[in-house]
Protein backbone atom coordinates (compact mmCIF):
# COMPACT_ATOMS: atom_id res chain seq x y z
CA UNK A 1 0.00 0.00 0.00
CA UNK A 2 1.19 3.51 -0.76
CA UNK A 3 2.38 5.74 2.09
CA UNK A 4 0.37 8.82 1.11
CA UNK A 5 -2.90 9.01 -0.79
CA UNK A 6 -2.42 12.08 -2.98
CA UNK A 7 -3.81 11.03 -6.33
CA UNK A 8 -6.18 8.28 -7.37
CA UNK A 9 -3.62 7.64 -10.10
CA UNK A 10 -1.11 6.46 -7.48
CA UNK A 11 -3.26 3.41 -6.73
CA UNK A 12 -2.42 0.25 -8.64
CA UNK A 13 -5.22 -2.16 -9.46
CA UNK A 14 -4.15 -4.27 -6.47
CA UNK A 15 -4.10 -1.25 -4.16
CA UNK A 16 -7.48 -0.01 -5.34
CA UNK A 17 -9.02 -3.46 -5.00
CA UNK A 18 -7.54 -3.82 -1.52
CA UNK A 19 -9.10 -0.51 -0.45
CA UNK A 20 -12.49 -1.47 -1.86
CA UNK A 21 -12.40 -4.96 -0.34
CA UNK A 22 -11.34 -3.53 3.00
CA UNK A 23 -14.17 -1.01 2.81
CA UNK A 24 -16.54 -3.95 2.25
CA UNK A 25 -15.32 -5.49 5.49
CA UNK A 26 -15.62 -2.15 7.30
CA UNK A 27 -19.24 -2.03 6.20
CA UNK A 28 -19.89 -5.57 7.45
CA UNK A 29 -18.12 -4.87 10.74
CA UNK A 30 -20.08 -1.75 11.55
CA UNK A 31 -23.50 -2.25 9.99
CA UNK A 32 -26.00 -3.29 12.65
CA UNK A 33 -23.50 -3.95 15.41
CA UNK A 34 -23.74 -3.28 19.12
CA UNK A 35 -20.40 -1.46 19.19
CA UNK A 36 -19.56 0.29 15.94
CA UNK A 37 -16.09 1.15 17.14
CA UNK A 38 -12.99 -0.84 16.34
CA UNK A 39 -9.85 -0.56 18.47
CA UNK A 40 -7.47 -0.66 15.53
CA UNK A 41 -6.09 2.90 15.56
CA UNK A 42 -6.07 3.32 19.33
CA UNK A 43 -3.30 5.74 20.25
CA UNK A 44 -2.94 7.09 16.75
CA UNK A 45 -3.66 10.71 15.99
CA UNK A 46 -5.43 11.80 12.86
CA UNK A 47 -5.56 15.51 12.05
CA UNK A 48 -8.24 16.86 9.79
CA UNK A 49 -6.54 19.88 8.27
CA UNK A 50 -9.20 21.80 6.41
CA UNK A 51 -8.08 25.00 4.74
CA UNK A 52 -11.34 25.01 2.86
CA UNK A 53 -14.79 24.51 4.31
CA UNK A 54 -16.32 21.12 3.75
CA UNK A 55 -18.45 19.92 6.58
CA UNK A 56 -19.49 16.73 4.83
CA UNK A 57 -16.01 15.53 3.92
CA UNK A 58 -14.55 16.50 7.28
CA UNK A 59 -17.38 14.80 9.16
CA UNK A 60 -16.96 11.68 7.07
CA UNK A 61 -13.23 11.47 7.82
CA UNK A 62 -13.83 12.29 11.45
CA UNK A 63 -16.38 9.54 11.84
CA UNK A 64 -14.14 7.09 10.01
CA UNK A 65 -11.17 7.88 12.24
CA UNK A 66 -13.26 7.72 15.40
CA UNK A 67 -14.80 4.38 14.44
CA UNK A 68 -11.24 3.10 14.32
CA UNK A 69 -10.56 4.63 17.77
CA UNK A 70 -8.03 7.17 16.54
CA UNK A 71 -7.71 10.47 18.34
CA UNK A 72 -9.03 13.13 15.99
CA UNK A 73 -8.04 16.75 15.90
CA UNK A 74 -9.90 19.13 13.63
CA UNK A 75 -7.97 22.09 12.28
CA UNK A 76 -10.22 24.18 10.14
CA UNK A 77 -9.83 27.56 8.52
CA UNK A 78 -12.48 29.13 10.69
CA UNK A 79 -11.46 30.23 14.14
CA UNK A 80 -7.87 29.10 13.95
CA UNK A 81 -4.52 30.40 12.87
CA UNK A 82 -5.23 29.05 9.39
CA UNK A 83 -7.47 31.99 8.69
CA UNK A 84 -4.84 34.37 10.03
CA UNK A 85 -2.50 33.53 7.21
CA UNK A 86 -0.33 30.96 8.96
CA UNK A 87 1.61 29.22 6.25
CA UNK A 88 1.12 25.62 5.23
CA UNK A 89 4.65 24.96 6.39
CA UNK A 90 4.15 26.41 9.88
CA UNK A 91 0.91 24.50 10.27
CA UNK A 92 2.66 21.32 9.19
CA UNK A 93 5.46 21.86 11.69
CA UNK A 94 2.87 22.39 14.42
CA UNK A 95 1.13 19.13 13.53
CA UNK A 96 4.44 17.32 13.52
CA UNK A 97 5.21 18.68 16.96
CA UNK A 98 1.82 17.39 18.14
CA UNK A 99 2.71 13.93 16.91
CA UNK A 100 0.17 13.54 14.14
CA UNK A 101 0.29 10.10 12.52
CA UNK A 102 -2.04 10.94 9.70
CA UNK A 103 -3.01 14.26 8.16
CA UNK A 104 -6.18 14.54 6.14
CA UNK A 105 -5.86 17.72 4.16
CA UNK A 106 -8.35 19.78 2.21
CA UNK A 107 -6.93 22.84 0.47
CA UNK A 108 -7.99 25.28 -2.19
CA UNK A 109 -4.56 25.09 -3.83
CA UNK A 110 -3.93 22.21 -6.19
CA UNK A 111 -0.92 20.22 -5.03
CA UNK A 112 -0.98 21.41 -1.39
CA UNK A 113 -1.22 17.82 -0.06
CA UNK A 114 1.62 16.90 -2.40
CA UNK A 115 3.75 19.67 -0.91
CA UNK A 116 2.84 18.52 2.58
CA UNK A 117 3.87 14.95 1.79
CA UNK A 118 7.07 15.67 -0.11
CA UNK A 119 8.52 18.81 1.45
CA UNK A 120 10.02 17.07 4.45
CA UNK A 121 8.03 19.21 6.87
CA UNK A 122 6.25 16.23 8.42
CA UNK A 123 6.55 12.48 8.76
CA UNK A 124 2.83 11.78 8.94
CA UNK A 125 0.90 9.98 6.23
CA UNK A 126 -1.00 12.47 4.10
CA UNK A 127 -4.46 11.83 2.73
CA UNK A 128 -5.71 14.23 0.10
CA UNK A 129 -9.27 15.20 0.97
CA UNK A 130 -9.58 17.45 -2.07
CA UNK A 131 -7.02 19.93 -3.40
CA UNK A 132 -8.06 22.81 -5.60
CA UNK A 133 -9.05 21.59 -9.02
CA UNK A 134 -6.65 18.66 -8.84
CA UNK A 135 -7.95 15.54 -7.11
CA UNK A 136 -10.21 14.04 -4.48
CA UNK A 137 -9.14 10.41 -4.36
CA UNK A 138 -11.35 9.20 -1.48
CA UNK A 139 -14.40 10.56 -3.31
CA UNK A 140 -13.44 8.48 -6.34
CA UNK A 141 -12.96 5.45 -4.10
CA UNK A 142 -16.37 5.87 -2.50
CA UNK A 143 -17.95 6.34 -5.92
CA UNK A 144 -16.28 3.17 -7.17
CA UNK A 145 -17.29 1.36 -3.99
CA UNK A 146 -20.91 2.43 -4.39
CA UNK A 147 -21.01 1.43 -8.06
CA UNK A 148 -19.32 -1.89 -7.35
CA UNK A 149 -21.89 -2.76 -4.70
CA UNK A 150 -24.64 -2.37 -7.30
CA UNK A 151 -22.96 -3.31 -10.55
CA UNK A 152 -20.39 -5.87 -9.46
CA UNK A 153 -16.83 -5.60 -10.75
CA UNK A 154 -16.39 -2.39 -12.74
CA UNK A 155 -14.18 -3.75 -15.52
CA UNK A 156 -15.93 -3.05 -18.82
CA UNK A 157 -18.70 -0.98 -17.25
CA UNK A 158 -19.74 2.24 -19.00
CA UNK A 159 -19.56 5.23 -16.69
CA UNK A 160 -20.58 8.70 -17.85
CA UNK A 161 -19.31 11.75 -15.94
CA UNK A 162 -21.11 14.98 -16.76
CA UNK A 163 -20.41 18.61 -16.01
CA UNK A 164 -17.67 20.99 -15.02
CA UNK A 165 -14.73 18.66 -15.62
CA UNK A 166 -12.32 21.59 -15.93
CA UNK A 167 -12.75 22.62 -12.30
CA UNK A 168 -13.60 19.20 -10.88
CA UNK A 169 -11.20 17.31 -8.67
CA UNK A 170 -13.84 14.59 -8.42
CA UNK A 171 -13.77 14.05 -12.18
CA UNK A 172 -9.96 13.83 -12.31
CA UNK A 173 -9.78 11.26 -9.54
CA UNK A 174 -12.67 9.25 -10.95
CA UNK A 175 -11.18 9.08 -14.43
CA UNK A 176 -7.87 7.81 -13.05
CA UNK A 177 -9.36 5.29 -10.63
CA UNK A 178 -12.02 3.97 -12.99
CA UNK A 179 -9.42 3.54 -15.73
CA UNK A 180 -7.32 1.50 -13.29
CA UNK A 181 -10.37 -0.62 -12.47
CA UNK A 182 -11.00 -1.20 -16.18
CA UNK A 183 -14.21 0.80 -16.56
CA UNK A 184 -14.95 2.75 -19.73
CA UNK A 185 -15.41 6.40 -18.85
CA UNK A 186 -16.96 9.09 -21.01
CA UNK A 187 -16.71 12.72 -19.94
CA UNK A 188 -19.54 14.92 -21.14
CA UNK A 189 -19.32 18.69 -20.90
CA UNK A 190 -19.50 21.82 -22.99
CA UNK A 191 -16.10 22.30 -24.68
CA UNK A 192 -15.36 25.26 -22.40
CA UNK A 193 -15.48 23.01 -19.35
CA UNK A 194 -13.14 20.30 -20.63
CA UNK A 195 -9.48 20.87 -19.82
CA UNK A 196 -6.82 21.38 -22.44
CA UNK A 197 -5.18 18.01 -23.12
CA UNK A 198 -8.17 15.91 -22.04
CA UNK A 199 -7.61 13.84 -25.18
CA UNK A 200 -4.61 12.32 -23.39
CA UNK A 201 -6.70 11.19 -20.41
CA UNK A 202 -7.68 7.52 -20.21
CA UNK A 203 -11.29 8.19 -21.19
CA UNK A 204 -13.54 9.31 -24.03
CA UNK A 205 -15.17 12.71 -24.29
CA UNK A 206 -18.42 13.91 -25.79
CA UNK A 207 -20.45 17.09 -26.04
CA UNK A 208 -23.70 15.18 -26.50
CA UNK A 209 -25.24 13.91 -23.28
CA UNK A 210 -28.19 12.08 -24.87
CA UNK A 211 -25.82 10.06 -27.02
CA UNK A 212 -23.48 9.22 -24.13
CA UNK A 213 -26.26 8.04 -21.81
CA UNK A 214 -27.39 5.25 -24.13
CA UNK A 215 -25.94 2.06 -22.71
CA UNK A 216 -24.48 3.69 -19.60
CA UNK A 217 -24.23 1.60 -16.43
CA UNK A 218 -23.94 4.70 -14.27
CA UNK A 219 -23.98 8.44 -14.70
CA UNK A 220 -22.20 10.80 -12.35
CA UNK A 221 -23.38 14.40 -12.33
CA UNK A 222 -20.84 17.01 -11.24
CA UNK A 223 -21.73 20.15 -9.39
CA UNK A 224 -21.72 23.19 -11.66
CA UNK A 225 -21.37 26.57 -10.05
CA UNK A 226 -23.76 29.09 -11.48
CA UNK A 227 -21.05 31.77 -11.24
CA UNK A 228 -19.18 30.02 -14.03
CA UNK A 229 -21.45 31.69 -16.52
CA UNK A 230 -19.94 35.02 -15.50
CA UNK A 231 -16.61 33.82 -16.90
CA UNK A 232 -18.34 32.85 -20.15
CA UNK A 233 -18.06 29.10 -19.66
CA UNK A 234 -21.71 28.88 -20.71
CA UNK A 235 -24.35 31.45 -21.54
CA UNK A 236 -26.91 30.83 -18.80
CA UNK A 237 -27.93 28.34 -16.16
CA UNK A 238 -31.02 27.58 -18.22
CA UNK A 239 -29.06 26.72 -21.33
CA UNK A 240 -26.64 24.64 -19.27
CA UNK A 241 -29.33 22.53 -17.65
CA UNK A 242 -31.12 22.09 -20.97
CA UNK A 243 -27.98 20.80 -22.68
CA UNK A 244 -26.17 19.07 -19.82
CA UNK A 245 -28.64 18.59 -16.97
CA UNK A 246 -30.04 15.19 -16.01
CA UNK A 247 -33.82 15.09 -16.04
CA UNK A 248 -36.36 12.28 -16.20
CA UNK A 249 -36.36 12.24 -20.01
CA UNK A 250 -32.61 11.75 -20.12
CA UNK A 251 -32.68 9.21 -17.29
CA UNK A 252 -35.09 7.17 -19.42
CA UNK A 253 -32.43 6.98 -22.15
CA UNK A 254 -30.30 4.83 -19.86
CA UNK A 255 -30.91 1.15 -19.17
CA UNK A 256 -33.46 0.84 -16.33
CA UNK A 257 -30.90 -0.43 -13.81
CA UNK A 258 -28.37 2.35 -14.49
CA UNK A 259 -27.23 4.26 -11.39
CA UNK A 260 -27.27 8.01 -10.79
CA UNK A 261 -24.46 9.45 -8.66
CA UNK A 262 -23.57 12.93 -7.48
CA UNK A 263 -20.67 13.84 -5.18
CA UNK A 264 -22.77 16.56 -3.57
CA UNK A 265 -23.69 19.17 -2.73
CA UNK A 266 -26.25 19.20 -5.52
CA UNK A 267 -27.66 22.16 -7.38
CA UNK A 268 -31.14 20.78 -7.86
CA UNK A 269 -32.60 22.19 -11.02
CA UNK A 270 -29.17 22.98 -12.43
CA UNK A 271 -27.26 19.79 -13.22
CA UNK A 272 -29.90 17.41 -11.87
CA UNK A 273 -33.65 17.63 -11.40
CA UNK A 274 -35.20 16.78 -8.04
CA UNK A 275 -37.15 13.80 -9.39
CA UNK A 276 -33.98 12.18 -10.74
CA UNK A 277 -31.99 12.94 -7.58
CA UNK A 278 -34.71 11.28 -5.50
CA UNK A 279 -35.43 8.41 -7.91
CA UNK A 280 -35.02 4.76 -7.05
CA UNK A 281 -31.85 4.51 -9.14
CA UNK A 282 -30.20 7.41 -7.34
CA UNK A 283 -27.51 6.25 -4.92
CA UNK A 284 -26.60 9.75 -3.80
CA UNK A 285 -27.48 9.23 -0.14
CA UNK A 286 -25.76 5.86 -0.12
CA UNK A 287 -22.59 7.56 -1.39
CA UNK A 288 -22.44 9.48 1.88
CA UNK A 289 -22.74 6.32 3.99
CA UNK A 290 -20.16 4.54 1.88
CA UNK A 291 -17.78 7.46 2.25
CA UNK A 292 -17.26 6.50 5.87
CA UNK A 293 -16.43 2.87 5.03
CA UNK A 294 -14.00 3.84 2.31
CA UNK A 295 -12.27 6.37 4.54
CA UNK A 296 -12.07 3.80 7.34
CA UNK A 297 -10.41 1.46 4.86
CA UNK A 298 -7.94 4.12 3.74
CA UNK A 299 -7.06 5.13 7.30
CA UNK A 300 -6.74 1.50 8.37
CA UNK A 301 -4.46 0.59 5.47
CA UNK A 302 -2.30 3.68 5.81
CA UNK A 303 -2.07 3.97 9.59
CA UNK A 304 -2.62 0.56 11.19
CA UNK A 305 0.55 -1.08 10.03
CA UNK A 306 4.15 -0.16 10.15
CA UNK A 307 4.84 1.60 6.91
CA UNK A 308 8.57 1.25 7.25
CA UNK A 309 8.64 -2.54 7.12
CA UNK A 310 8.14 -3.84 3.63
CA UNK A 311 5.71 -6.59 2.75
CA UNK A 312 7.35 -9.57 4.39
CA UNK A 313 4.39 -11.25 6.04
Amino acid sequence: MIRHLLSAGDLSLDDATLVLDTADEMARLTEGRAVKKLPTLRGRTVVNLFFEDSTRTRTSFELAAKRLSADVINFSAKGSSLSKGESLKDTALTLEAMGADGVVVRHSASGAPYRLATSGWINACVVNAGDGTHEHPTQALLDAFTMRRHLGELAGKQIVIVGDVLHSRVARSNVLLLATLGAKVTLVAPPTLLPNGVEHWPCATSYDLDDALTGADAVMMLRVQKERMNAAFFPSAREYSRRYGLDARRQALMPPEALVLHPGPMNRGMEITADVADSARSVIVEQVTNGVYVRMAVLYLMLAGNATTEEAA
Binding site: S110, T133, H134, N196
Partner: peptide, 18 residues
Protein backbone atom coordinates in the same frame (compact mmCIF):
# COMPACT_ATOMS: atom_id res chain seq x y z
CA UNK B 1 -2.74 31.37 -14.47
CA UNK B 2 -0.22 29.08 -12.80
CA UNK B 3 1.61 27.09 -15.43
CA UNK B 4 1.90 26.41 -19.15
CA UNK B 5 -1.49 25.37 -20.46
CA UNK B 6 -1.31 21.86 -21.79
CA UNK B 7 -1.93 18.25 -20.92
CA UNK B 8 -0.05 18.63 -17.64
CA UNK B 9 -1.90 21.72 -16.40
CA UNK B 10 -5.17 19.88 -16.96
CA UNK B 11 -3.91 16.86 -15.05
CA UNK B 12 -2.41 18.84 -12.17
CA UNK B 13 -5.43 21.07 -11.84
CA UNK B 14 -3.32 24.21 -12.18
CA UNK B 15 -4.81 27.14 -14.11
CA UNK B 16 -3.39 27.11 -17.62
CA UNK B 17 -1.25 29.89 -19.12
CA UNK B 18 -1.77 29.55 -22.83
Amino acid sequence: AQMNEGELSGRLGLRGWP
